[in-house]
Design a protein around this nucleic acid. Structure first.
Lengths: 220, 220
DNA sequence: GGCCGCCTCCACCCCTGGGTGGATGCCGCC
DNA sequence: GGCGGCATCCACCCAGGGGTGGAGGCGGCC
């Protein structure tokens, strides 16, 4: 038996969810709430398996609720149920630990399926949400530029690479000399070699390459 | 009627897919292939709506097939069907334009559903694949630093922001003056204000903030 | 009107950054 | 051994970056 708490500021939506979920004989409505504050206390009291959570609500929005739950030691699986599907909102919700993200145009049958999936530990995303997630995940690691950057940086000597990374962290030549235990003149020499090999003319462009290559630590 | 081409080096898998998909009266098997080269020519000839594509194959792997399709002007929707679910493989496949990514433990019914979804323009991912995609997408955008950076950059005036972005692209002051149509002295003034507001001392650190904030275009 | 913030520009100064040329010692390879 | 690549350092030079102070015009706000 899957115990579900439903949260939405619209009584009509609550009624609809009650009907949809109540119709399944493996699901029980353990509680309801119409704002964020009430949601947290209801979830804390009922300890449901799954929470269906609206985003736009009075008193406290759904994202804040998501953020508060782990702080309270509550580990319910949450499905965000909203009409908004901006990239930022989706990523924020998932980052805050949402197990599902459904748009409100989801069919009753799909909502029930999503609750079952999430209860079983699987994710549940609307198709358009999945599409946006794919776009976000595939654009983050900018492939061709990254490969090119890695290729170029691989041609640097160890010391040049150390200097390039230090440069990309915004350090000055004297600071680099100190942290890498070499003379300022040596730093300048290496910086010059880096410029030549990366075919750039100033430090900011070095920083771009280093970041494009996905390097941050001083590379063992 | 959804026309499907199935590609797998294992004849048993092909036979299984033939049975599963042939059982649906809205799906036809338009062609089959047992290696990458054959797959490309079959897909080019049959122009199917959906392709079910294995990754590990002789002669040419599935990823290479994915890469070649757009080069040939073919725009079939491809579902990758494999036993491997490493982060890198998933992201690579999706980056190359895969519309679906199913693991081979997917039930026959779910495979049929995935074909229908993909044919309708929706994505189709196995639950564990979705989970990994969420992990990849949520870790890429480093949240707290990004928020801090956005917050600081929001305090810049429009002109200062333009200059900061130009700086972060590695332009020199004269270059910035030219592209933004202002005097070099003005550029210096703005750069100075940016340093003060971002509390940094050189241009590379400005670049870090701008990139952390996820800004690249000159912000209308 | 007066005040304030922003954009624009100027002049002056100093220091770091970046380019050039040269020197030494180390290590591995032919 | 001789050669070449790398790391380390030096001196010199100059252009650009970065700090300071000041000025005028423009628009919104009290």
């Amino acid at each position: 038996m899957i115990r579900v708490v439903i949260v939405d500021d619209d009584p009509l939506v609550l009624a609809g969810l009650r009907m949809i979920l109540g119709g399944s004989n493996d699901i029980t409505i353990a509680g309801e709430a119409t704002d964020g504050h009430a949601a947290i206390s209801t979830i804390a009291r009922e300890k449901p398996d799954v929470v269906l959570l609206d985003i736009r609500m009075p008193r406290m929005d759904g994202i804040s609720v998501l953020r508060r739950l782990p702080e309270r030691g509550i580990s319910a699986r949450v499905i965000v149920l909203t009409t908004f599907d901006t990239d930022e909102l989706i990523l924020t919700a998932l980052k805050q630990g949402a197990a599902g993200y459904l748009l409100k145009d989801t069919s009753p049958g799909d909502i029930v399926n999503a609750v079952r999936r999430v209860a079983a530990g699987e994710p549940a995303l609307s198709p358009t949400v999945t599409t946006q997630l794919i776009a976000a995940a595939t654009k983050s690691t900018d492939d061709s530029r990254r490969r090119a950057a890695r290729h170029l940086i691989a041609r640097l000597t160890d010391r040049e690479r150390d200097v390039a990374i230090a440069v990309s962290q915004g350090l000055t030549n004297p600071e680099i000399a100190q942290t890498l235990h070499m003379g300022i003149a040596t730093v300048k020499t290496h910086v010059g070699s880096v410029f030549a090999k990366l075919e750039v003319t100033n430090r900011v462009q070095v920083a771009r390459y280093v970041h494009d290559a996905g390097i941050s630590a001083p590379s063992g």
